[in-house]
Design a protein around this nucleic acid. Sequence first.
DNA 1: ACCTGAACACCGTTCAAGT
DNA 2: ACCTGAACACCGTTCAAGT
Lengths: 244, 244
Amino acid sequence: MREPKTTEPGADHPKPGTAAWWLARENEPARPRRRRSLTLDAILDAAMTLLDARGAGALTMRNIAEALGCTQASLYRHVRNREELVTLLVDRAVSVASAAPPEGADWAEKAAWSARRFREHLLRHPGVASLLRGTERLGPNSLAGMQYALGLFIGAGLSPRLASAAASSLATFVLGSVQFNLGLDTADPEESRHRRLLYGSRDAGALPLLVEHADTLAAVTSDDEFEFGLNALLTGFRALAAPS
Amino acid sequence: MREPKTTEPGADHPKPGTAAWWLARENEPARPRRRRSLTLDAILDAAMTLLDARGAGALTMRNIAEALGCTQASLYRHVRNREELVTLLVDRAVSVASAAPPEGADWAEKAAWSARRFREHLLRHPGVASLLRGTERLGPNSLAGMQYALGLFIGAGLSPRLASAAASSLATFVLGSVQFNLGLDTADPEESRHRRLLYGSRDAGALPLLVEHADTLAAVTSDDEFEFGLNALLTGFRALAAPS
DNA sequence: ACCTGAACACCGTTCAAGT
DNA sequence: ACCTGAACACCGTTCAAGT
C-alpha cells in the first residue's frame, strides 16, 4: 500500500506467496546463524497469538513488536514487509490440513472428514480465515495438504489433472464457505429472526420465493449449506470419476 | 479499526451488511430531500471508478473525496463509516448476477451460465472480488440473484431448504474460486514455469505425487479448476434432486 | 442545513545513528 | 552485526467553526 516513490513494487522481489517467492526463499543464503535475540519463529508465534486473541485488525507491526518487546523496525530484519509475514503466518496456520483421517474409510469419507476438520479449524481461528485469500497455497503445509488430496482423488480414479482440479475445488469451497459467513453467526436466533423479517418484507411481485419461504430460508444455517455443498461436490467427483 | 474510546462499536447501530442493518436502513426517515450537491449515488459512482481504476488499496475516504472535489468529512454525512460504503458498493457491483440466461436451456445449463457470467464479471473487476467477503449477501441485488437461483433449483426438484443451500454453495464456489486466485495469473507461462519448478523440486519422499506430476499440475489453470468444480457441483445437485 | 479545516489516534516503512 | 528512535507519508473518524 505504501509503495516506494521511484521503483515499481516487486520489480526486485517476487510477490509473497507466489511460486517464485517460495522458490527464492529457500535459495537464500541461510541467514547467518549468529546469536539472535529475535527470530522469525518468535515473530510468527507472537503474530499468531495476537491474531487469535484480538483478530486480524490488531495484527499490526506495532502490536507484534510490542508483544515481543522490540521495535517495529526490528521486524523488518526478518521479514521484507507485512505481506510476507502474513503469507508465512497463513501457511503455518494451515498445517492442520494434513492430519490423517480415520483408516478404513473410503476416499469420499476421508475427503469429507478432512474438509470438515479444515473448516472447523478455520471457524476456531477466524482471524486466519480472514487472511487466507489472495495468498496462494504453495507453502509447505499447503503442499502437504495437496499431496494428500491428490492421493485420495487419484485413488478414486481421477487423472492427476482432474484430481488437482478436485482438490482445488474442495479447498476453494471450504475456504469460501467460511469466509462468506465470517462474523455472521447464522445459528444466532437474533440474526435468524432479522433475516426472516428481511425476506418476508420484500416485494412479493419481484421476489416471490423469498417472501413465500422466508421462514425456511431464515432457518438455514451455514452448517447446512456447507454439508449440502460438500455432499454435492463429492457426489459430483464420484460421478466424474466413474468410467462413462 | 479506529473504535471510539468509551462505547462499544456497533452497540448503537447494527453491523453493515447484516439483515438488521439492511432492515434499519429502509426504515430510516428518508433523508430530507433538500438540494444536495453531494449524493450517495455520486459517492458510490466515484468509489466504483476508483476501485476499477486503481484497486481496493486506493479506495480510501481521502481519494473518494478528492475525486468528488469535497472533503473527507462530507462523506460521513451520507455514510456512517467506510464499512457501510463498501457494503453498499459491493451490492451495487453485483447486480450483474441477475441477468437472464438463454431461454430453452435446462436448469443446470442456466445455473452454469449464470455462474460463469458472475465469475467473468468478478475477474473483470478484481477490486470488487477482493471486497466481496465477510459482507453478507443480503442487499437488493444479492437478493435478486438468490430469488433467481432458488427458482432454478426448486424447479429442478429440490426443496426450498436444499435449493437455498445449493444457491449458497454455488455462490460460495464462484466467489471462492475468484478470490483464491486473485492476482495470480495461472495462465501466465512464467508463473506456470515457477510452479513446475516448485513442485518438481520438493522432497520426493514426502510429496511424491507433486514431484511425479509436476508438469501436469503446473499446467492446470484456474479456468480448468473452475469448470471442473462447477461441473461437479451441478452433477451433485442433480443427483441429490433426483428421487432416491 | 450543509460543508470545511484541522486535528486525533492510528497505520506500514525507512534510515541514520547508536551499541 | 544487530537494534533503536525518530521520522515520513499515509489511514479512518470526529467536531468545532464557518456559510
